[in-house]
Simulated assay, not measured.
Amino acid sequence: MIEENGPSAHESEVSSSSQARQKLEGLLNKNMRIRMTDGRTLVGLFLCTDRDCNVILGSAQEFLKSSDTFSQGEPRVLGLAMIPGHHVVSIEVEADSLEDAEGFGANH
């Protein structure tokens, strides 16, 4: 007879999945800066993602890679943009205020 002590592997997997979902839901409608493999940077509101890590940004603006590190030039307005997950290099959440920046890593 097999006895179980604590949650099963499936239960802990579901728990971590729901925690990840809650974190993603907390980022909805936040400004994000996404750097892509070709050097472009997109900034916009995080609207959704999927299992393949594709990201949809609303009110997106594109900044081209610049040879001058101090100036990024004028942004190109894209509106609604889909970034394929395999092109994402990094994602940053832009904090609206100091409180948001401090609260991002905290458990709520």
Results as ranks from 00 to 15, higher is better:
43 V>Q: 06
26 G>A: 06
55 V>H: 01
41 T>Q: 11
31 N>W: 00
36 M>G: 04
43 V>A: 07
52 D>W: 11
25 E>F: 06
20 A>V: 11
22 Q>E: 14
36 M>N: 15
45 L>S: 05
42 L>P: 03
27 L>F: 06
31 N>C: 03
37 T>C: 11
24 L>N: 06
18 S>K: 13
53 C>W: 02
49 T>F: 02
16 S>I: 15
26 G>R: 01
5 N>R: 10
20 A>Y: 11
31 N>R: 07
4 E>T: 08
39 G>Y: 02
45 L>H: 02
15 S>R: 08
17 S>G: 05
8 S>E: 05
13 E>D: 15
4 E>W: 12
50 D>C: 11
13 E>Q: 08
29 N>I: 00
37 T>N: 14
8 S>L: 02
6 G>Q: 04
42 L>D: 04
11 E>K: 01
46 F>G: 03
26 G>D: 01
36 M>V: 15
34 I>Q: 06
33 R>K: 15
27 L>S: 05
21 R>A: 10
36 M>I: 12
35 R>L: 07
11 E>G: 05
15 S>E: 12
7 P>C: 01
41 T>E: 13
30 K>C: 00
27 L>P: 01
45 L>T: 01
34 I>R: 06
22 Q>M: 12
38 D>V: 08
16 S>R: 15
52 D>N: 12
7 P>Y: 03
48 C>D: 12
12 S>Y: 03
23 K>R: 15
18 S>P: 02
46 F>Y: 09
56 I>C: 03
34 I>T: 03
51 R>M: 04
54 N>V: 09
51 R>F: 07
38 D>T: 11
19 Q>V: 13
39 G>K: 04
44 G>A: 13
56 I>S: 01
43 V>E: 13
28 L>D: 05
37 T>R: 14
20 A>S: 12
46 F>W: 04
11 E>A: 13
43 V>H: 09
11 E>Y: 06
40 R>N: 15
